[in-house]
Amino acid sequence: MSWFSRTFSSSVGRKFAMALSALFLIIFLLQHATINFLSVISADAFNEASHFMGTNPLVQFLMQPILIFAVVFHFIMGFVLEAKNRASRPIKYFKKDTGNATWVSQNMIYSGLVILAFLALHFIDFWIPEMDYKYVQQLPEDPDRYYEELVHKFQSPLRTGVYVISFVLLGLHLWHGFQSSIQSVGINNRFTPGFKKVTEAFAVVIPFVFILIAVFHFFNH
């Protein structure tokens, strides 16, 4: 077996890879929330940032494929690990007390599945129309279209509600996932308790920003 296979077929190696993809997605979320929050402050600023992200070749042809790979990898590896973990206890307990383990940490697969369903909706709402606009229909670039496209999506109370619920689940997923990924890359030292507070703040603030954006545009237009 090759070095690569031995490393990434092991449970520790897989968790390491899972953690790296998680940390990459966490950085992406920070960037995504920051740019989207501009839409609450200024339509022009949001259009300018979105135009840059939508037309910059580095973002489009390097970062975007890496992001897609990270998302797909994170979900597939999550399912692979979940399947192996479930198989490790073929006979369940009649009575189980989860002790001090949080509900969130014990049910990452379910919060992850909700996020996966949300991503499907999100791709249908934004990414697929964007690809269609740019690469299928090859329409001329309009730097001012992004704000209107965003606002238009949040006219529906159903869609806004689904987004809000999904962001709550994203927050729960991040609550455990962020700190867990730090442990999985081998970091647990005297700074860890303090950094855990930072990860928990991140898990609250980032989903809150996304919820704020959705609700703001729903009520503002």
């Binding site: 449970s11 968790k15 192996k84 973990n85 989860t98 383990a101 940490s105 014990q106 455990h176």
Partner: peptide, 23 residues
């Protein structure tokens, strides 16, 4: 490396850092 390989071969699951073990 060797102990993790044996742990996996025995059929134990992966750690998801829930903390139930330490508790």
């Amino acid at each position: 490396e060797n102990m993790v390989a044996q742990m996996d071969a025995e059929g134990f699951g992966a750690c998801t850092n829930t903390g139930a073990c330490a508790a």
